[in-house]
Design a protein around this nucleic acid. Structure first.
Lengths: 158, 158
DNA sequence: GATCGACACATAAGTGCCTTATGTCATAAT
DNA sequence: ATTATGACATAAGGCACTTATGTGTCGATC
């Protein structure tokens, strides 16, 4: 029994509740009218991994190809990304994040940081110390999924 | 300077990245075709807080009243909740989760637990210990928002 | 080179899930 | 009785998905 987590259903249950609550909270961080979670996730991937074809993007983001085609069209219309046809394969489209897209991602990160600082402001020192101590473990947790091979270890939001 | 979090931008930044990654991960837990995050959140609130009026529900969930009217109509059509007009106020509609709705929430919880056990299976004992030690602090963090007065301390997903 | 199959994306049609604006009925206040 | 307020329903539009289908390009086979 290598992992205590698998043998401690009560803690797993509490963690499960905590994740759901975090998700519900994060939904309120970004002001209305901003880019969607799907758009942000897609732009972030392009920024981190470089230009990708539409079908690869769709697969990586877990949506259908037509959904990604539409999202790319919308984001191109907003100047947040650019499309081009690669040399040697006129069937494909390569998509890359634009400078404006990078700016949007940076603004989102700043909003998250502000939200967290607000939230952390009411936390006492020992609680924050426990969270800070768990950060490396949580980062390893998030990085440990089998399909995390798509996410290189150096990937991070600035 | 009560909270070390507010003075440690690098850790806050790492936490911010972690949250975004968790959100992106959780998006893949639930199989396609299941109820949306909004539907789940709404049903969970009804289960935990009892019958609510549509406008109160909309406000609590952070959406507009017409959006909630439509969601309630859809969920009623699927048998996941029930509507009734309360005594003494024929303008209102009271909404309550159904037994089928409770079953759906329980199935979601089981899926999250399974996902977490999968994820935790690759984590070593000291990492899990650090996460387990941080759980109370994280729970307090999530419960600490000013509008958390709507969430009672005893509220938890079974 | 010609033909067929596979690949890649675009388009169509439909649903879910939001938004603001507006309409209708019920209740409370004057 | 009249007016103001409250509560929800409906309309119209946009975003974000889905499956199904269409069109063009590339690769494999003969």
């Amino acid at each position: 029994m290598q992992s205590p987590g698998a043998s401690d259903p009560e803690l797993v249950g509490r963690f499960s509740v905590l994740l759901e609550q975090l998700v519900r909270r994060l939904r309120t961080v970004y002001a209305a009218g901003q880019i969607s979670q799907s758009a942000a996730s897609t732009l972030a991937r392009l920024r981190d991994e470089g230009p990708l074809r539409i079908t690869d993007l769709a697969h990586a983001e877990g949506v259908s190809q037509p959904a990604m085609t539409q999202l790319v069209a919308r984001l191109e219309g907003e100047g947040l990304l650019a499309r081009r046809v690669p040399e040697g394969d006129r069937r494909s489209v390569l998509v890359d994040v634009s400078a404006a897209g990078r700016d949007v991602l940076e603004a989102r990160r700043a909003q998250r940081v502000e939200f967290l600082q607000d939230l952390l402001a009411g936390l006492d020192r020992s609680d924050w110390a426990a969270i800070a101590a768990a950060l490396p473990a949580l980062e390893r947790l998030v990085a440990s999924e089998p399909n995390s091979s798509r996410q290189s270890a150096h990937r991070k939001e600035p």
